[in-house]
Amino acid sequence: MQLEHVNLVVKNIPASLKFYQAAFPHWRVRSEGSGEWYGKARNWLHFGDDYQYLSFSDHGEGELRDNTGHLVGLAHFGYQVKNLDAVIERLTAAGFAVDKVGASNPFRKNVYFIDPTGYEVEFIEYLSDIPIERNNNLS
């Protein structure tokens, strides 16, 4: 079993696409269109590869939960990457700053970015193939 897609309601599809294209240059726009979602017009776009993707829709209202707060809701989602430094370089070159660096750990390194809508996205590179090391609490 694997996660196939995440559906994100975003403020601006082109701005979101710019962020995720910088993070995942090997992904592509799989499909896009417009329609209605429970009585409200929306545009949508699927961005990914043949097996996983992000779905963006632009019909949302209001603000996301505060990432530093305690309200129920999505805190962040994370992607395992092979080369964290390359991801950081691509995102910063596209105009996005690292929001925070993860705790020091001998078996992984990670950073967090905030996408154009305000979703917190973690990128993590594991420095070990041993699960007990990858999943430890050392900091």
Rank of each mutant, 00 (worst) to 15 (best):
G62Q: 14
D115L: 03
E122N: 05
Y53M: 02
E125Y: 00
N43K: 15
V10W: 03
D85A: 12
N43T: 15
H46L: 03
S104K: 07
D85P: 05
A103P: 04
G69S: 12
D66F: 11
P106V: 05
A103Q: 07
P116G: 13
D49F: 14
R42D: 13
W37P: 08
W37A: 14
I88W: 02
E36H: 13
F107S: 09
Y20M: 01
S55I: 10
V111C: 01
L74N: 00
G73S: 03
I88T: 03
R28D: 13
R30L: 14
T92C: 11
Y20G: 00
L127V: 06
W37K: 13
F24Q: 11
S31T: 15
S139C: 10
A103S: 04
A23Q: 04
N43A: 14
Y119V: 05
R90V: 08
P131C: 07
L74T: 07
N43Q: 15
K11C: 12
H26F: 06
S128Q: 04
E36S: 15
L127Q: 09
S55V: 15
W27L: 08
R30K: 14
H76P: 04
P14T: 06
L17K: 05
D99S: 06
A15E: 09
Y20C: 03
G48Y: 03
A86G: 12
N83M: 09
D99V: 00
I114V: 14
E32A: 13
E32D: 12
T117I: 01
D129P: 08
D85C: 05
A86F: 10
Y119E: 04
E63C: 10
K109C: 08
A103G: 09
E36V: 15
D58G: 02
I130G: 06
Q2R: 14
F123D: 02
M1P: 07
P116F: 12
E120T: 08
G73A: 00
Y38M: 13
T92E: 14
V98L: 00
G118W: 06
G60E: 14
P25L: 13
L17H: 04
D66I: 11
F24S: 07
F77D: 01
N7Y: 00
D58K: 07
